[in-house]
Design a protein around this nucleic acid. Structure first.
Length: 328
DNA sequence: ATGGTTTTTACTGCGTC
DNA sequence: GACGCGGTAAAAACCAT
């Protein structure tokens, strides 16, 4: 097994453990700065743990500590919930709402008069109406919480969350939910929103913070896009560049070169059919060569989640395209 | 389902520090 | 000898049909 692959999987499992840790709410007990031994301060607003003395950022991109009411399964729910009657998950509203019996009998078991029967029927109808409206509200609430959680885990700005919520609402209104999970649809909404906003996240990144499998996200995403007739162009490779560049601590100059490479590639039409992420990664790598700020292929492949081979193939093409343009 | 294309995986060889 | 890089064949994933 190659070195690259091993560190790849290490990275993966590391991420998973931190996530589950946060979910089970167990706080990391790290109080001393590894650099200077100073005291660590948790800046939850920016999602960082910072050393007060030397300013070292120990941990970034923490998953935000969402509202307390979020619970993923019944076990967790029992632990977190503090109030209310015992509930059942069998009903959409956990059996907490009022139900009006169907037997047309009063509390003593006597038949109701015709007039009373009619009245009860009307009440049943209305009660049902409010109840389903209620269930949509709940549904929405949960979905929005989910969207918020994932968005902050991915460092996506507010406007993306807004868009995601709008998409989700539409999906809900058009009855796209039945047969699909709330998580799946909210994840897809977020994915779509991120792409629409020009700050795309790859399917893998999304899948990492979501509770549903990649396949399902992709499937649901396609479905939602089709049904809502969302118009989403393939992601622009350039939109990945800033993130990769900053992850690798590259200069603005390199970032500019990377952009430029991608643009000439676009003009030359080299890019069609290739994965945008791969292109972006290759451009960043090539740019780092051109500006002598060398980063290794494996470093780029790490932050971009793209294989080194792909980076190699793409960056040759990019440089070739660049040369062609130079000659003309 | 199928076939064509792209990406990944796994492995090998070469040069350099 | 480990590391970065290049290349290749075969498998896997992806996409349109």
């Amino acid at each position: 097994m190659s070195e690259n692959v091993r560190s790849y999987t290490d990275e993966r499992s590391r991420r998973e453990t931190t996530e589950s840790e946060t979910e089970s709410d167990s706080e990391r007990e790290r109080v001393e700065c590894p650099e200077c031994g100073g005291k660590l301060v948790n800046d939850s607003e920016r999602g960082e743990t910072v050393c007060r003395d030397c300013g070292l950022v120990v941990e970034e991109d923490e998953i935000d500590h969402g509202p307390e009411w979020r619970a993923f399964d019944s076990k967790e729910k029992d632990q977190k919930s503090r109030v209310g009657a015992p509930t059942t998950n069998m009903m959409h509203d956990k059996g907490l709402s009022t139900n009006i019996g169907w037997q047309d009998k009063d509390a003593y078991g006597n038949q109701l008069s015709g007039r009373q029967r009619e009245k009860m029927q009307r009440l049943r109808t209305w009660n049902e109406r409010f109840r389903t409206r209620d269930s949509k509200e709940r549904n929405l609430k949960q979905a929005l919480g989910e969207i918020d959680r994932m968005a902050s885990a991915l460092g996506l700005p507010d406007n993306v969350r807004e868009t995601a919520s709008v998409i989700y609402r539409r999906a809900l209104d058009e009855d796209l939910l039945p047969g699909r999970s709330i998580e799946g649809v909210s994840t897809s909404s977020l994915y779509a929103a991120a792409r629409q906003a020009g700050t795309p996240r790859s399917l893998d990144e999304i899948a990492n913070v979501s509770r549903v499998e990649k396949d399902e996200i992709a499937r649901t995403y396609r479905y939602v896009v089709r049904e809502l007739k969302l118009e989403i162009q393939p992601a622009d490779p350039e939109s990945y560049v800033p993130r990769f560049a900053s992850d690798l601590d590259l200069s603005d100059e390199s970032e500019r070169r990377a952009r430029q490479l991608l643009q000439t590639a676009k003009e030359e039409g080299v890019h069609s059919g290739k994965s945008p992420v791969g292109l972006a990664a290759a451009a960043v790598y090539a740019a780092s060569l051109l500006t002598n700020e060398k980063v290794t292929q494996s470093e780029v492949s790490e932050v971009a989640n793209i294989s080194e081979v792909t980076i190699r193939n793409r960056y040759h093409e990019l440089l070739e395209a660049e040369e062609q343009v130079q000659l003309n």
